[in-house]
Design a protein around this nucleic acid. Structure first.
Lengths: 343, 343
DNA sequence: ATGAAAGCGCTAACAC
DNA sequence: GTGTTAGCGCTTTCAT
């Protein structure tokens, strides 16, 4: 089914059919109606490839993430796809598997398909890939990127605010000995969280000894290892803020194995609020990152960049704050309630 | 960068460049080499849309799933994408959100983009969409579909074998009073599991009263509700086989809330082996569905269908068996060990 | 083995 | 407003 036969059926030219379908130019009501009927009758759907070739826009948007298997991402993907669908666009998803090389390859493949925009929600950035996007001036939006220097559109999470809320919450419960499990140092946003933790503690006049700053990897195993480390300390913290939920879940496992009860003897706060966190027992107190909002904001920014061809100078940046979700892994420290001794 | 300039640079015709790049026809070694160098030097990448338009194949494959947010799917998606990437193909993922309407829309959108094949890994099937695929003779592969009548390619899971293993395992531990939580009746594969459970019990000469066959919805909430139901029974089973892991996790929650310990007082077996199942405490004993294998098998079948244009008659069907994963939610029933009374 | 030329299905100038 | 025409970048006959 091609546009010519629709045109013939409607008694107009192919150009008119195109105009009706895309609303690119005014068409007389009667003809428009005839076209619409013909389209309907023939079940015509335009060939997207031909459209892309002729019209310089593919209706395809790229979304690059690190690992769809990481529970953080599906929400992001879904929200992005939903908004895209709403605007009649398709989404090409690519999974870099944390590999900068593969990331560059993804960008190339997307460029080949003439995507109208790319959202990059990974940390591992390949410089050359980014340059490629710049020089082709493809609408691009980043998330969670360290490179603030360049003039790029960004959706950001206010990690510092989140960490502050976590620390404030533990303080409020009576905790004074608070530790932190960091994420991979290669991840800019993980460093942001670590730095925020240090500052929050300092701001409260509390000091967190270096040995309470554990290394993690944003995976369950890292949390378990951190606990093993912690158990060796003579002085132990009474609560732990974790760089992400997976780490916190590892901590819970490790603690349980060591016979330490959560939250009675030890409090834990996570970060992300992945779905599992509400299922496990006890539920994980954590900071919810508004992933759906991030994703839909990112898509809209791409769309806008695409239309505002006139205004290439306006670099947008949106920042979203996490939300503290209180569940079962935090309580007053073992022997104190709001500073008073009990038991 | 277009093919003409590559051709000029290499001192050949565009046709020859195309032939070298696609291996469509023999080219003299020297010219081939010159072309390759020119491509390299100019960083030429073909425009996929033009290729699709001229060559009748887009290098794009569609993957339709129900809900990327459901922990069952990410593994599937990843495996599918990985194989596709291996073969230099791209993947268009669509999420139907369990809505047959949206599913039909997905198929249309994919057809518009001239996908070379579609894998449908949802249960909710839209008849008209399927017919559309048939008449256009697009390579298609289904998963988990009830419609066996039509001549279509299918990758299947041997649910019956899985359920049998679950029942056998519980029997072996000494359980005799075994219940089952079903999935949504609209899902063919859920019915398969329910039927298999009935048969397995019958085969063992055990009867499972109707009140031990609980309704579920393949979500956590359904598991919790089933437990509430169970707690009202005067006669209770000592073990439960669940139609999927999410249900089993709900059961664990419900049981914990009711003060019943798992596995000491109650045993649970899940189905799927989603990632969470190994994180929770105790780890969930379950049947692992080999999702990566399913996905890569599906992709390969699509690829094959695309090439074997000569053999449209060969309908393929592959079946994969689940694997019993022993973790912490199953043990001998409270007062018996292999039939002997203890404690 | 290789080049010239004719499209693939659509959009966008350009006339009218 | 509307039709005609010329491509978009590539593949593929068809000659040679």
């Amino acid at each position: 089914m091609k546009i010519d036969v629709v045109a013939k059926q409607a008694g107009v030219s192919p150009a008119t059919v195109s105009r009706v379908l895309n609303g690119t130019a005014p068409v007389s009501p009667e003809k428009a109606e005839r076209v619409r009927q013909a389209v309907e009758a023939l079940g015509f759907v335009p060939n997207t490839n031909a459209q892309a070739l002729a019209g310089w826009k593919s209706g395809l948007f790229g979304l690059i993430i690190s690992d769809i298997t990481n529970p953080y991402f599906p929400d992001l993907v879904k929200a992005f796809e939903d908004v895209a669908l709403e605007y009649g666009r398709d989404v090409l998803i690519a999974d870099t598997n944390y590999d900068p090389h593969r990331m560059a390859a993804c960008v190339t493949r997307m460029l080949q398909r003439q995507v109208d925009g790319i959202a990059i929600m990974t940390s591992e950035l390949d410089e050359s890939a980014v340059r490629l996007l710049e020089q082709r001036s493809i609408p691009t939006v980043f998330m969670d990127t360290g490179k603030l220097d360049k003039k790029i559109n960004v959706v950001r999470v206010d990690y510092a605010a989140g960490v502050n809320m976590a620390v404030a919450h533990l303080l409020e419960l009576g905790h004074r000995k608070i530790g932190f499990i960091a994420g991979p140092p290669s991840l800019p946003s993980a460093n942001l969280r670590l730095r925020a933790f240090r500052q929050a503690m300092k701001a409260q006049g509390l000091n967190s000894p270096a040995e309470w700053l554990y290394k993690g990897d944003h995976r369950v195993s890292g949390g378990i290892q951190a606990v093993n480390q912690l158990l060796k300390n003579k002085q132990r913290p009474s609560a732990l803020v974790c760089s992400n939920d997976l780490t916190a879940i590892g901590v819970m496992e490790g603690l349980t194995d060591a016979g330490i009860r959560v939250p009675e003897e030890f409090s834990i706060v996570g970060f992300d609020d992945i779905e599992i966190s509400s299922y496990i027992k006890p539920g994980l107190t954590t900071l919810r990152v508004p992933r759906s909002q991030l994703a839909s904001a990112a898509f809209r920014m791409l769309l806008e960049q695409g239309s505002n061809s006139s205004t290439p100078a306006s670099i947008e940046e949106r920042c979203f704050s996490p939300l503290l979700i209180l569940r079962g892994t935090t309580s007053a420290p073992a022997t104190y309630t709001r500073g008073r001794k009990v038991r």
